[in-house]
């Protein structure tokens, strides 16, 4: 059993010190890893990233993050990445990371992603240079996600983005702004890259659950959507930790169960 905690859009500002560290403390013993789906800061300023860094610095579980559009707003995304990395987080942009959880290798591939829209209602690589640049950026980051998923040498793959890969998890947002909320190219990468789960944020008014055309579960973990400090997901794969727990906890029960069945 791999236990994933995830939240996006925590939007910490310089006035937010002390608000997120308790979430991490509370996850000890309940989650094996925390994934942050972007928009960690409010304005993308390094001093806000320092607040985030201080909140996650004492994490007892691995923290894996992607940045969101807010984290890019101050043109300081590299500095923010460095600040979070120094605090022990793994910040992904077109890259992956693997964590061994009781003998099972959990791989997380991450990109911020981008808008562009969903199949049948998406921007095209056509027209003005700005429009072409917009659409090409969306495709490029989706390709980066695919490469990052393919590069992972692991047992379970999770795709982590800020922007949405599917419109299912946007329900509640105005349909007119879907092209600013995500891109179906991300879903193509999730499917082609063999992910077991895709997590994203960004769409505060969206819905938690959806799935890609290929059947991969998609979860919108934006803080306002999940309505709690973070969402918890379990992937049903047996780890060495489960085996230990099973021995300690369930042996007597197993014996009880077996006995009456014996003819």
């Amino acid at each position: 059993m791999i236990r994933i905690a995830a939240v996006g859009d925590i939007h910490l500002g310089t006035d937010s010190a002390g608000t997120f560290a308790p979430v991490l403390r509370d996850l000890v013993g309940r989650a094996d890893v925390l994934l942050l789906a972007g928009d960690l800061t409010q304005h993308g300023r390094p001093e806000e990233a320092e607040v985030v860094a201080a909140e996650i610095a004492r994490a007892e579980i691995p923290v894996v993050a992607v940045l969101g559009n807010h984290d890019y707003h101050g043109d300081a995304e590299e500095e923010i990445t460095a600040i979070l990395t120094a605090a022990g987080a793994t910040v992904l942009e077109g890259a992956g990371t693997v964590h061994d959880i009781g003998g099972v290798r959990l791989g997380v591939a991450g990109v911020k992603g981008f808008g562009g829209g969903f199949a049948g209602a998406s921007g095209s690589d056509f027209g003005e240079p700005l429009m072409k640049a917009f659409v090409r950026h969306a495709r490029d980051v989706a390709n980066n996600l695919l490469f990052a998923l393919e590069e992972l040498d692991c047992d379970i793959r999770v795709a982590l983005t800020h922007y949405a890969p599917v419109p299912d998890t946007l329900i509640g947002e105005r349909a007119e702004i879907y092209p600013f909320l995500g891109s179906y190219h991300l879903a193509e990468a999730v499917d082609a890259g063999g992910a077991e789960l895709a997590l994203h944020g960004h769409a505060h008014a969206g819905s938690e659950r959806g799935s890609t055309a290929g059947g991969v579960p998609v979860r919108n973990v934006a803080r306002p959507v999940i309505g709690k400090a973070c969402a918890l997901y379990e992937i049903g794969v047996r780890t060495a930790i489960d085996a230990e727990r099973a021995e300690v906890r369930t042996s007597p029960h197993s014996a009880d169960l077996v006995t009456p069945v014996t003819p």
């Binding site: 608000t19 308790p22 979430v23 400090a229 379990e234 049903g236």
Partner: peptide, 16 residues
């Protein structure tokens, strides 16, 4: 939105 602080045991979803 409310504090980002922990808020007690949360529901856990099992994937697949």
């Amino acid at each position: 939105t409310g504090r980002t602080t922990a808020d007690g045991p949360a529901n856990v979803e099992t994937i697949q």
